[in-house]
Design a protein around this nucleic acid. Structure first.
Lengths: 113, 113
DNA sequence: TATATTTGCAACCATACGGTTAAATATTCA
DNA sequence: TGAATATTTAACCGTATGGTTGCAAATATA
């Protein structure tokens, strides 16, 4: 089964887990305390996050401490940022123009809505 | 069912579609030509991308021209970038230190691997 | 008008996902 | 050693996902 960062952060619970342990590592039980779902459910989310490298687990006695590994987010950042110029700067206008050229012209108005 | 940008870009085919129409808007048939899956499969991907606002469709005769709407990627960018300091600069060391404090100290070596 | 082209839609299928409960395992503590 | 705690694993369930084929509908073209 596919297991990559994009798929891992697709689930809102998993994004919340990352946000939770960002500043403070927690054991699985403590993580579970912040959600309304069962411990095994959290355990599965943690496993997915671990498999894609977004999270590492440090065993400490019977506890398993979850720590975020943010370097992995670079993959997402890189993918998104390659398109940044398309939505932030003046290239927008150029893009629209090129689209007109490519697809054979039409009123631009419906693009606004 | 949940329909948000994170879930939309989780699928590699959909990320490829976005990359494909980034510089040049295409009709659905042309998009399909770049993949090994059927037209209805592409149509479904396009629908998902449209529902979450990453893509708009402009009808032109019998063609439906797909255009990327990159502004929606801001949502992803914002989420990722809030963690950037955690993996790019000196705060890494501070974070590790705080983890030690919080979880009760242990060799830092296994964090490196 | 007849035909080809582009697309949508319905029905279907196998598998993945996100969740549950219950039992098993491992560690700590009295 | 026995009990409590933390977590994983297994079995299961309903629904979503990503794909298919076949057919209908709308538009363009000969």
């Amino acid at each position: 089964m596919r297991r990559d960062v994009f798929q891992a952060i697709a689930d809102p619970t998993r994004r919340d887990i990352i946000g939770l342990i960002a500043h403070r590592s927690l054991n699985l039980n403590a993580v579970t305390g912040h959600f309304d779902i069962s411990r095994p459910a959290i355990s599965k989310h943690i496993k997915i996050l671990t498999q894609c490298g977004l999270l590492t687990i440090r065993q400490k006695g019977r506890d398993r401490i979850c720590e975020a590994n943010f370097k992995k987010l670079n993959e997402v950042s890189d993918w998104v940022e390659q398109y940044r110029t398309f939505w932030t700067n003046k290239l927008d206008a150029l893009c629209d123009f090129l689209d007109e050229e490519a697809t054979g012209n039409k009123s631009n108005q419906e693009l606004q809505k």
